[in-house]
Design a protein around this nucleic acid. Sequence first.
DNA 1: GTCTATAGGCAGATAGAC
DNA 2: GTCTATCTGCCTATAGAC
Lengths: 203, 203
Amino acid sequence: MQRQPGDPDTAAKILDIAERLVQVRGFNGFSYADVAAELGVTKSALHYHFSGKAELGDALIVRYATRFAAALAAIDTQTTDAAAKLDAYASLYLDVVRDERMCLCGMLAAEYQTLPAPMGEAVMRFFDDNEAWLARTLQQGRDDATLHFVGSAHDTARMVISSLEGAMLVARPYGDIGRFEAAARGLLAGLTPATAPRPVPAA
Amino acid sequence: MQRQPGDPDTAAKILDIAERLVQVRGFNGFSYADVAAELGVTKSALHYHFSGKAELGDALIVRYATRFAAALAAIDTQTTDAAAKLDAYASLYLDVVRDERMCLCGMLAAEYQTLPAPMGEAVMRFFDDNEAWLARTLQQGRDDATLHFVGSAHDTARMVISSLEGAMLVARPYGDIGRFEAAARGLLAGLTPATAPRPVPAA
DNA sequence: GTCTATAGGCAGATAGAC
DNA sequence: GTCTATCTGCCTATAGAC
Protein backbone atom coordinates (compact mmCIF):
# COMPACT_ATOMS: atom_id res chain seq x y z
CA MET A 1 0.00 0.00 0.00
CA GLN A 2 3.08 2.24 -0.15
CA ARG A 3 3.52 4.70 -2.94
CA GLN A 4 5.28 3.63 -6.14
CA PRO A 5 7.41 6.03 -8.18
CA GLY A 6 5.30 7.48 -10.95
CA ASP A 7 2.15 6.62 -9.04
CA PRO A 8 -0.77 8.27 -10.83
CA ASP A 9 -2.64 8.76 -7.56
CA THR A 10 0.03 10.69 -5.74
CA ALA A 11 -2.25 13.70 -5.58
CA ALA A 12 -4.89 11.65 -3.77
CA LYS A 13 -2.30 10.27 -1.36
CA ILE A 14 -1.06 13.76 -0.61
CA LEU A 15 -4.61 14.81 0.15
CA ASP A 16 -5.13 11.79 2.41
CA ILE A 17 -2.04 12.57 4.47
CA ALA A 18 -2.58 16.31 4.55
CA GLU A 19 -6.23 15.85 5.51
CA ARG A 20 -5.34 13.79 8.54
CA LEU A 21 -2.58 16.20 9.54
CA VAL A 22 -4.93 19.18 9.37
CA GLN A 23 -7.64 17.35 11.31
CA VAL A 24 -5.16 16.38 14.03
CA ARG A 25 -2.70 19.29 14.15
CA GLY A 26 -4.42 22.13 12.31
CA PHE A 27 -3.57 23.96 9.08
CA ASN A 28 -0.91 26.00 10.91
CA GLY A 29 0.40 22.89 12.64
CA PHE A 30 1.66 20.90 9.66
CA SER A 31 4.11 21.55 6.83
CA TYR A 32 4.91 20.32 3.35
CA ALA A 33 7.88 18.56 4.96
CA ASP A 34 5.53 16.51 7.17
CA VAL A 35 3.49 15.34 4.20
CA ALA A 36 6.55 14.65 2.05
CA ALA A 37 8.25 12.60 4.79
CA GLU A 38 5.17 10.48 5.37
CA LEU A 39 4.64 9.90 1.66
CA GLY A 40 8.33 9.20 1.08
CA VAL A 41 8.95 11.94 -1.46
CA THR A 42 10.57 15.36 -1.35
CA LYS A 43 8.77 18.63 -0.78
CA SER A 44 9.35 19.54 -4.42
CA ALA A 45 7.17 16.67 -5.57
CA LEU A 46 4.30 18.14 -3.58
CA HIS A 47 4.67 21.47 -5.33
CA TYR A 48 4.19 19.69 -8.63
CA HIS A 49 0.74 18.49 -7.54
CA PHE A 50 -0.32 21.52 -5.50
CA SER A 51 1.40 24.80 -6.29
CA GLY A 52 1.30 26.01 -2.71
CA LYS A 53 -0.11 25.34 0.72
CA ALA A 54 -3.12 27.56 0.03
CA GLU A 55 -4.06 25.53 -3.06
CA LEU A 56 -3.58 22.29 -1.14
CA GLY A 57 -5.88 23.69 1.53
CA ASP A 58 -8.52 24.58 -1.04
CA ALA A 59 -8.39 21.08 -2.48
CA LEU A 60 -8.69 19.56 0.99
CA ILE A 61 -11.90 21.42 1.76
CA VAL A 62 -13.42 20.76 -1.65
CA ARG A 63 -12.80 17.03 -1.39
CA TYR A 64 -14.00 16.90 2.23
CA ALA A 65 -17.17 18.83 1.45
CA THR A 66 -17.88 16.70 -1.61
CA ARG A 67 -17.49 13.50 0.39
CA PHE A 68 -19.71 14.88 3.13
CA ALA A 69 -22.39 15.92 0.66
CA ALA A 70 -22.32 12.41 -0.81
CA ALA A 71 -22.78 10.95 2.66
CA LEU A 72 -25.80 13.20 3.23
CA ALA A 73 -27.29 12.15 -0.10
CA ALA A 74 -26.75 8.51 0.87
CA ILE A 75 -28.60 9.08 4.13
CA ASP A 76 -31.53 10.49 2.20
CA THR A 77 -31.52 7.45 -0.05
CA GLN A 78 -31.31 4.87 2.71
CA THR A 79 -33.51 6.48 5.33
CA THR A 80 -36.91 8.12 5.40
CA ASP A 81 -37.49 8.71 9.12
CA ALA A 82 -36.23 12.16 10.13
CA ALA A 83 -34.99 11.03 13.54
CA ALA A 84 -33.07 8.17 11.92
CA LYS A 85 -31.54 10.66 9.50
CA LEU A 86 -30.34 12.76 12.41
CA ASP A 87 -28.86 9.67 14.03
CA ALA A 88 -27.03 8.88 10.82
CA TYR A 89 -25.85 12.48 10.62
CA ALA A 90 -24.42 12.33 14.14
CA SER A 91 -22.72 9.06 13.35
CA LEU A 92 -20.83 10.75 10.52
CA TYR A 93 -19.29 12.93 13.20
CA LEU A 94 -18.74 9.93 15.44
CA ASP A 95 -16.69 8.26 12.71
CA VAL A 96 -14.37 11.28 12.73
CA VAL A 97 -14.04 11.21 16.51
CA ARG A 98 -13.28 7.48 16.45
CA ASP A 99 -10.41 8.26 14.12
CA GLU A 100 -9.08 10.67 16.76
CA ARG A 101 -9.62 13.57 14.45
CA MET A 102 -11.46 16.87 14.54
CA CYS A 103 -13.88 17.79 11.76
CA LEU A 104 -11.74 19.34 9.03
CA CYS A 105 -13.90 22.43 8.81
CA GLY A 106 -14.31 22.70 12.57
CA MET A 107 -10.54 22.80 12.89
CA LEU A 108 -10.30 25.35 10.10
CA ALA A 109 -13.02 27.44 11.73
CA ALA A 110 -10.76 27.81 14.77
CA GLU A 111 -7.92 28.97 12.50
CA TYR A 112 -10.22 31.09 10.36
CA GLN A 113 -8.42 34.39 10.98
CA THR A 114 -5.16 33.00 9.63
CA LEU A 115 -6.53 31.23 6.55
CA PRO A 116 -6.21 32.39 2.93
CA ALA A 117 -9.53 34.00 1.97
CA PRO A 118 -10.66 31.25 -0.45
CA MET A 119 -10.26 28.63 2.27
CA GLY A 120 -12.30 30.68 4.71
CA GLU A 121 -15.10 31.03 2.20
CA ALA A 122 -15.04 27.29 1.48
CA VAL A 123 -15.35 26.57 5.20
CA MET A 124 -18.48 28.69 5.38
CA ARG A 125 -19.96 26.94 2.35
CA PHE A 126 -19.41 23.61 4.12
CA PHE A 127 -21.39 24.79 7.13
CA ASP A 128 -24.05 26.35 4.91
CA ASP A 129 -24.55 23.06 3.07
CA ASN A 130 -24.82 21.15 6.33
CA GLU A 131 -27.28 23.67 7.65
CA ALA A 132 -29.46 23.41 4.55
CA TRP A 133 -29.60 19.61 4.72
CA LEU A 134 -30.29 19.62 8.45
CA ALA A 135 -32.97 22.30 8.14
CA ARG A 136 -34.77 20.23 5.49
CA THR A 137 -34.54 17.13 7.65
CA LEU A 138 -35.71 18.94 10.78
CA GLN A 139 -38.62 20.52 8.94
CA GLN A 140 -39.63 17.13 7.56
CA GLY A 141 -39.57 15.70 11.09
CA ARG A 142 -41.63 18.51 12.50
CA ASP A 143 -44.16 18.23 9.67
CA ASP A 144 -44.77 14.56 10.38
CA ALA A 145 -44.50 15.07 14.17
CA THR A 146 -41.54 12.75 14.64
CA LEU A 147 -39.37 15.63 15.77
CA HIS A 148 -40.01 18.51 18.10
CA PHE A 149 -38.13 21.76 18.45
CA VAL A 150 -38.82 25.41 19.25
CA GLY A 151 -37.91 28.11 16.77
CA SER A 152 -36.98 27.90 13.10
CA ALA A 153 -35.59 24.82 11.44
CA HIS A 154 -32.59 26.84 10.29
CA ASP A 155 -31.74 28.07 13.79
CA THR A 156 -32.13 24.54 15.11
CA ALA A 157 -29.91 23.22 12.32
CA ARG A 158 -27.24 25.70 13.33
CA MET A 159 -27.55 24.56 16.92
CA VAL A 160 -27.13 20.92 15.91
CA ILE A 161 -24.01 21.68 13.87
CA SER A 162 -22.38 23.86 16.50
CA SER A 163 -23.20 21.45 19.32
CA LEU A 164 -21.68 18.51 17.48
CA GLU A 165 -18.62 20.52 16.48
CA GLY A 166 -18.22 21.70 20.06
CA ALA A 167 -18.60 18.18 21.40
CA MET A 168 -15.76 17.05 19.13
CA LEU A 169 -13.64 20.00 20.13
CA VAL A 170 -13.94 19.51 23.86
CA ALA A 171 -13.73 15.71 23.75
CA ARG A 172 -10.37 15.87 21.96
CA PRO A 173 -8.10 16.72 24.89
CA TYR A 174 -9.64 13.90 26.90
CA GLY A 175 -9.32 11.37 24.08
CA ASP A 176 -12.71 10.19 25.20
CA ILE A 177 -15.20 9.04 22.58
CA GLY A 178 -17.82 8.55 25.31
CA ARG A 179 -17.77 12.26 25.98
CA PHE A 180 -18.80 12.93 22.38
CA GLU A 181 -21.37 10.15 22.33
CA ALA A 182 -23.07 11.39 25.48
CA ALA A 183 -23.28 14.92 24.09
CA ALA A 184 -24.69 13.67 20.78
CA ARG A 185 -27.25 11.48 22.54
CA GLY A 186 -28.35 14.38 24.72
CA LEU A 187 -28.66 16.65 21.71
CA LEU A 188 -30.78 14.21 19.70
CA ALA A 189 -32.90 13.34 22.75
CA GLY A 190 -33.86 17.00 22.93
CA LEU A 191 -35.27 16.79 19.42
CA THR A 192 -37.20 13.49 19.73
CA PRO A 193 -40.13 13.89 22.16
CA ALA A 194 -40.91 10.19 22.39
CA THR A 195 -37.56 9.28 23.88
CA ALA A 196 -37.39 12.21 26.26
CA PRO A 197 -40.84 12.95 27.71
CA ARG A 198 -41.02 16.14 29.61
CA PRO A 199 -43.55 17.49 32.10
CA VAL A 200 -45.77 20.35 31.03
CA PRO A 201 -45.31 23.30 33.40
CA ALA A 202 -48.18 23.71 35.87
CA ALA A 203 -49.15 27.07 34.36
CA MET B 1 -1.84 53.95 27.82
CA GLN B 2 1.34 53.00 25.96
CA ARG B 3 4.13 51.15 27.68
CA GLN B 4 6.86 53.14 29.45
CA PRO B 5 10.48 51.92 29.60
CA GLY B 6 10.99 50.09 32.88
CA ASP B 7 7.27 49.56 33.23
CA PRO B 8 6.69 47.21 36.15
CA ASP B 9 3.62 45.71 34.51
CA THR B 10 5.26 44.64 31.30
CA ALA B 11 4.51 41.01 32.10
CA ALA B 12 0.79 41.78 32.37
CA LYS B 13 0.86 43.74 29.10
CA ILE B 14 2.60 40.83 27.37
CA LEU B 15 -0.11 38.51 28.65
CA ASP B 16 -2.85 40.87 27.45
CA ILE B 17 -1.46 41.00 23.94
CA ALA B 18 -0.58 37.32 23.72
CA GLU B 19 -3.99 36.35 25.08
CA ARG B 20 -5.79 38.21 22.35
CA LEU B 21 -3.46 36.85 19.67
CA VAL B 22 -4.06 33.28 20.82
CA GLN B 23 -7.81 33.81 21.01
CA VAL B 24 -7.88 35.26 17.50
CA ARG B 25 -5.09 33.42 15.66
CA GLY B 26 -4.30 30.39 17.80
CA PHE B 27 -1.19 29.37 19.72
CA ASN B 28 0.45 28.20 16.49
CA GLY B 29 -0.68 31.34 14.69
CA PHE B 30 1.27 33.98 16.62
CA SER B 31 4.92 34.56 17.43
CA TYR B 32 7.09 36.39 19.95
CA ALA B 33 7.75 38.87 17.16
CA ASP B 34 4.02 39.70 16.94
CA VAL B 35 3.78 40.41 20.66
CA ALA B 36 7.03 42.36 20.74
CA ALA B 37 6.03 44.55 17.80
CA GLU B 38 2.66 45.37 19.32
CA LEU B 39 4.17 46.15 22.70
CA GLY B 40 6.99 48.17 21.18
CA VAL B 41 9.87 46.12 22.56
CA THR B 42 12.21 43.48 21.16
CA LYS B 43 11.72 39.74 21.35
CA SER B 44 14.53 39.55 23.89
CA ALA B 45 12.54 41.60 26.38
CA LEU B 46 9.80 38.99 26.21
CA HIS B 47 12.24 36.22 27.02
CA TYR B 48 13.16 38.09 30.19
CA HIS B 49 9.56 37.87 31.41
CA PHE B 50 8.68 34.44 30.01
CA SER B 51 11.56 32.12 29.29
CA GLY B 52 9.87 30.53 26.29
CA LYS B 53 6.63 30.26 24.38
CA ALA B 54 5.60 27.22 26.41
CA GLU B 55 5.93 29.14 29.69
CA LEU B 56 4.04 32.08 28.23
CA GLY B 57 1.32 29.66 27.21
CA ASP B 58 1.13 28.20 30.70
CA ALA B 59 0.83 31.66 32.21
CA LEU B 60 -1.92 32.56 29.74
CA ILE B 61 -4.08 29.62 30.73
CA VAL B 62 -3.50 30.09 34.45
CA ARG B 63 -4.52 33.73 34.30
CA TYR B 64 -7.51 33.02 32.07
CA ALA B 65 -8.72 30.19 34.29
CA THR B 66 -8.25 32.27 37.42
CA ARG B 67 -10.23 35.14 35.96
CA PHE B 68 -12.97 32.76 34.83
CA ALA B 69 -13.16 31.14 38.26
CA ALA B 70 -13.52 34.56 39.83
CA ALA B 71 -16.37 35.36 37.43
CA LEU B 72 -18.14 32.14 38.43
CA ALA B 73 -17.70 32.98 42.11
CA ALA B 74 -19.14 36.41 41.43
CA ILE B 75 -22.19 34.87 39.78
CA ASP B 76 -22.75 32.73 42.87
CA THR B 77 -22.53 35.84 45.04
CA GLN B 78 -24.87 37.97 42.97
CA THR B 79 -27.43 35.40 41.92
CA THR B 80 -29.41 32.66 43.60
CA ASP B 81 -31.73 31.49 40.84
CA ALA B 82 -30.16 28.60 38.90
CA ALA B 83 -31.59 29.70 35.53
CA ALA B 84 -30.26 33.21 36.10
CA LYS B 85 -26.86 31.72 36.90
CA LEU B 86 -26.89 29.86 33.60
CA ASP B 87 -27.81 33.07 31.81
CA ALA B 88 -24.91 34.83 33.46
CA TYR B 89 -22.64 31.93 32.52
CA ALA B 90 -23.65 32.16 28.88
CA SER B 91 -23.10 35.90 28.92
CA LEU B 92 -19.48 35.32 29.96
CA TYR B 93 -19.09 33.55 26.63
CA LEU B 94 -21.03 36.25 24.85
CA ASP B 95 -18.54 38.84 26.09
CA VAL B 96 -15.78 36.87 24.41
CA VAL B 97 -17.71 36.61 21.15
CA ARG B 98 -18.44 40.35 21.21
CA ASP B 99 -14.70 40.92 21.38
CA GLU B 100 -14.37 38.85 18.18
CA ARG B 101 -12.40 36.21 20.03
CA MET B 102 -12.66 32.50 20.61
CA CYS B 103 -12.56 31.11 24.15
CA LEU B 104 -8.85 30.76 24.96
CA CYS B 105 -9.22 27.15 26.03
CA GLY B 106 -11.58 26.30 23.18
CA MET B 107 -8.94 27.53 20.75
CA LEU B 108 -6.25 25.56 22.57
CA ALA B 109 -8.46 22.47 22.57
CA ALA B 110 -8.38 22.57 18.77
CA GLU B 111 -4.59 22.78 18.85
CA TYR B 112 -4.31 20.24 21.65
CA GLN B 113 -2.17 17.74 19.75
CA THR B 114 0.53 20.34 19.14
CA LEU B 115 0.63 21.85 22.63
CA PRO B 116 3.35 21.31 25.24
CA ALA B 117 2.02 18.76 27.74
CA PRO B 118 1.60 21.19 30.67
CA MET B 119 -0.59 23.44 28.54
CA GLY B 120 -2.77 20.52 27.49
CA GLU B 121 -3.30 19.51 31.09
CA ALA B 122 -4.16 23.07 32.08
CA VAL B 123 -6.76 23.21 29.30
CA MET B 124 -8.44 20.12 30.71
CA ARG B 125 -8.43 21.57 34.22
CA PHE B 126 -10.21 24.63 32.85
CA PHE B 127 -12.97 22.51 31.39
CA ASP B 128 -13.12 20.37 34.54
CA ASP B 129 -13.60 23.46 36.70
CA ASN B 130 -16.34 24.75 34.43
CA GLU B 131 -18.04 21.38 34.47
CA ALA B 132 -17.96 21.21 38.26
CA TRP B 133 -19.50 24.66 38.65
CA LEU B 134 -22.15 23.98 36.01
CA ALA B 135 -23.00 20.59 37.48
CA ARG B 136 -23.56 22.17 40.90
CA THR B 137 -25.73 24.87 39.37
CA LEU B 138 -27.74 22.42 37.28
CA GLN B 139 -28.28 20.13 40.27
CA GLN B 140 -29.45 23.07 42.33
CA GLY B 141 -31.92 24.01 39.62
CA ARG B 142 -33.25 20.50 39.32
CA ASP B 143 -33.61 20.21 43.09
CA ASP B 144 -35.76 23.32 43.29
CA ALA B 145 -37.56 22.49 40.01
CA THR B 146 -36.45 25.65 38.20
CA LEU B 147 -34.47 23.61 35.70
CA HIS B 148 -35.27 20.43 33.82
CA PHE B 149 -32.91 18.02 32.11
CA VAL B 150 -32.57 14.32 31.42
CA GLY B 151 -29.51 12.42 32.61
CA SER B 152 -26.81 13.37 35.07
CA ALA B 153 -25.94 16.94 36.00
CA HIS B 154 -22.34 16.26 34.97
CA ASP B 155 -23.27 15.01 31.51
CA THR B 156 -25.55 17.98 31.06
CA ALA B 157 -22.80 20.32 32.23
CA ARG B 158 -20.51 18.87 29.59
CA MET B 159 -23.21 19.38 26.98
CA VAL B 160 -23.60 23.02 27.98
CA ILE B 161 -19.86 23.66 27.76
CA SER B 162 -19.37 21.92 24.44
CA SER B 163 -22.45 23.53 22.90
CA LEU B 164 -21.33 27.02 23.87
CA GLU B 165 -17.77 26.35 22.70
CA GLY B 166 -19.10 24.98 19.43
CA ALA B 167 -21.39 27.95 18.96
CA MET B 168 -18.40 30.29 19.33
CA LEU B 169 -16.35 28.16 16.95
CA VAL B 170 -18.89 28.09 14.14
CA ALA B 171 -20.01 31.70 14.57
CA ARG B 172 -16.44 32.95 14.09
CA PRO B 173 -16.13 32.62 10.30
CA TYR B 174 -19.42 34.48 9.88
CA GLY B 175 -18.48 37.26 12.27
CA ASP B 176 -22.06 37.03 13.44
CA ILE B 177 -22.81 37.50 17.13
CA GLY B 178 -26.46 36.71 16.46
CA ARG B 179 -25.49 33.19 15.46
CA PHE B 180 -23.97 32.64 18.89
CA GLU B 181 -26.84 34.31 20.72
CA ALA B 182 -29.44 32.17 19.00
CA ALA B 183 -27.55 29.00 19.84
CA ALA B 184 -27.16 30.04 23.48
CA ARG B 185 -30.84 30.95 23.74
CA GLY B 186 -31.86 27.62 22.28
CA LEU B 187 -29.57 25.77 24.64
CA LEU B 188 -30.86 27.52 27.75
CA ALA B 189 -34.47 27.20 26.60
CA GLY B 190 -33.99 23.46 26.59
CA LEU B 191 -33.11 23.57 30.27
CA THR B 192 -35.87 25.90 31.47
CA PRO B 193 -39.28 24.21 31.14
CA ALA B 194 -41.30 27.35 31.83
CA THR B 195 -39.97 29.23 28.83
CA ALA B 196 -40.17 26.28 26.44
CA PRO B 197 -43.27 24.19 27.13
CA ARG B 198 -43.34 20.93 25.32
CA PRO B 199 -46.15 18.53 24.55
CA VAL B 200 -46.21 15.20 26.35
CA PRO B 201 -46.22 12.40 23.78
CA ALA B 202 -49.62 10.78 23.31
CA ALA B 203 -48.38 7.42 24.65
C1' DG C 1 6.90 13.17 -11.71
C1' DT C 2 10.46 13.39 -8.93
C1' DC C 3 14.88 14.82 -7.81
C1' DT C 4 18.98 18.14 -5.89
C1' DA C 5 20.06 22.46 -4.62
C1' DT C 6 19.10 26.66 -2.96
C1' DA C 7 16.86 30.96 -1.99
C1' DG C 8 14.76 34.19 1.41
C1' DG C 9 12.25 34.62 5.36
C1' DC C 10 10.66 33.89 9.93
C1' DA C 11 10.57 30.93 13.96
C1' DG C 12 12.16 30.41 18.94
C1' DA C 13 16.07 31.16 21.56
C1' DT C 14 20.77 32.86 23.65
C1' DA C 15 24.97 35.87 24.86
C1' DG C 16 26.43 39.78 26.49
C1' DA C 17 26.41 45.09 26.58
C1' DC C 18 24.03 48.91 28.78
C1' DG D 1 14.63 45.43 31.92
C1' DT D 2 15.75 46.19 27.59
C1' DC D 3 18.85 46.36 23.98
C1' DT D 4 21.92 44.59 19.67
C1' DA D 5 23.63 40.89 17.52
C1' DT D 6 23.55 36.42 16.28
C1' DC D 7 22.47 31.40 15.97
C1' DT D 8 20.18 27.40 14.34
C1' DG D 9 16.50 25.44 12.38
C1' DC D 10 12.33 25.13 9.79
C1' DC D 11 9.17 27.26 6.68
C1' DT D 12 7.29 27.99 1.76
C1' DA D 13 8.79 28.26 -2.66
C1' DT D 14 11.60 28.13 -7.09
C1' DA D 15 15.11 26.68 -10.71
C1' DG D 16 16.69 23.36 -13.35
C1' DA D 17 18.56 18.45 -14.00
C1' DC D 18 16.97 13.74 -14.82
